[in-house]
C-alpha cells in the first residue's frame, strides 16, 4: 500500500457478500457512516462560518468502501491558532468518528502525529493552519506501510532505531559512594540537539535513500547513534559505535540532501551529525594505517 495513489472518493454501494452477523453489521455501519458524512459535509459548506477545507487520505483494508484509498473532504470552522491536529480532531469528533490518526500529547513531545501535510512531513500538533495553503491535504507519512487512514506501520522505524545499540553499555552502579559521572558543559552541549529526537519518523520518511534502501539505518537512527558516540561519558565505546555506523547500510549511504534536516520538527541538524560521523569514521580508520 502506498500513499502515492490518488483515487477520487468512490461511493459504490454494492451489497457486500455477507458471511457473518459481524460482517453484516460492519457493512451496515459503513453505509450509514458514508451517508452521515456526506450529509454533514454538505451542511458544513452551506454555512457562513469561515471554514478550512481538509482533504484527508482514507484507507481501511477491512472496510469495503475504504479498501480503495481515497480522499475525504472535511470543512472545519476556522479559529485563530488552530493547528492541523485541532482540525483533524474536530473533523473526527463532529463528522466521522472513524477518522483515524495517532496523537497524544498535543505539544510536540510524544512524536505520534508526524503526517504528510501539503507535501511535506510535519507534526500536526505544531503546524498552524494559517501557515498552510488551502485546501490542506493530509496524508500518512510516505514510504511507510499504511495501516489505516493516517496511521502508518512504525515497526521498521523502531527496528532501525534499536539496531544502533541505543543505550549506555555499563550495567551496574560503581561500588562506593553514590556519585555521578562527570560530563563537561561543552560535551553536554555537543550532544544536546541529538538528544531532542522524539522518534516521530518525519526525517526517515523524507529521505530518498531510506526509501530506496530498506536496510539503510536512516537519519533518526544515525542521530541516535551520534548521541552516544559523542558522549564523553562512554568515550571508550566510540570505536565500537563507529563500526556499527560504517557498515554497508550506515553513514556512507547518506548523500547530504538535507531533506531530513529540513523536516525535523525539533530542529536537529541531522545531516551535519551524519557528516560528522563520517569524518569520525575516517579518522578512526586512519589510525590503524
Amino acid at each position: 500500500m502506498s500513499t502515492q495513489e490518488q483515487e477520487p472518493a468512490t461511493q459504490e454501494q454494492e451489497p457486500p457478500e455477507t458471511e457473518s452477523p459481524g460482517d453484516r453489521r460492519r457493512a451496515e455501519k459503513q453505509r450509514r457512516l458514508a451517508a452521515d458524512r456526506q450529509a454533514e459535509a454538505e451542511a458544513a459548506t452551506t454555512t457562513d462560518e469561515e471554514t478550512v477545507l481538509l482533504k484527508v487520505f482514507r484507507y481501511d483494508p477491512e472496510v469495503e468502501d475504504k479498501q480503495e484509498p481515497r480522499f475525504d473532504d472535511f470543512h472545519v470552522p476556522y479559529e485563530d491558532g488552530m493547528t492541523v491536529l485541532d482540525a483533524l480532531i474536530y473533523a473526527r469528533d463532529t463528522f466521522d468518528s472513524s477518522l483515524t490518526f495517532r496523537h497524544s500529547c498535543r505539544q510536540a513531545i510524544c512524536g505520534s502525529d508526524a503526517l504528510f501535510v501539503n507535501g511535506s512531513q510535519r507534526l500536526a500538533c505544531k503546524t498552524q493552519l494559517s501557515d498552510l495553503d488551502a485546501p490542506v491535504r493530509v496524508e500518512p507519512l510516505p514510504h511507510q506501510d499504511v495501516v489505516k487512514d493516517l496511521v502508518v506501520d512504525m515497526e521498521h522505524f523502531y527496528d532501525q532505531m534499536h539496531a544502533v545499540e541505543p543505550y549506555f553499555q555499563s550495567d551496574d552502579l560503581p561500588e562506593g559512594d553514590l556519585e555521578e559521572q562527570r560530563q563537561s558543559r561543552e560535551n553536554r552541549e555537543k550532544v544536546k540537539m541529538s538528544t531532542r529526537c522524539i522518534w516521530c519518523g518525519a526525517c526517515t520518511s523524507s529521505c530518498n535513500i531510506a526509501a530506496g534502501d530498506n536496510q539503510y539505518l536512516g537519519p533518526a537512527a544515525i542521530n541516535k547513534a551520534y548521541r552516544f558516540t559523542m558522549d564523553e561519558r562512554e568515550a571508550d565505546k566510540k570505536e565500537h559505535r563507529l563500526r556499527i555506523l560504517e557498515q554497508e547500510h550506515g553513514v556512507w549511504r547518506c548523500q547530504t540532501q538535507f531533506s531530513c534536516t529540513e523536516v525535523c520538527p525539533k530542529d536537529i541538524p541531522l545531516t551535519e551529525h551524519i557528516q560528522e560521523l563520517k569524518r569520525e569514521a575516517v579518522k578512526k580508520n586512519l589510525k590503524f594505517w
Binding site: Q181, Q183, S184, R185, R188, T195
Partner: peptide, 23 residues
C-alpha cells in the same frame, strides 16, 4: 531518590551540568 537519580545518570541521562561537570 538520590540513588535513583544517580542510577539514571549512569544510564546516560543528559542532565544539565555545573562547571565542574556535576549534575
Amino acid at each position: 531518590a538520590p540513588e535513583e537519580v544517580i542510577q539514571l545518570e549512569h544510564w546516560g541521562m543528559p542532565f544539565s551540568r555545573e562547571e565542574d561537570g556535576r549534575v
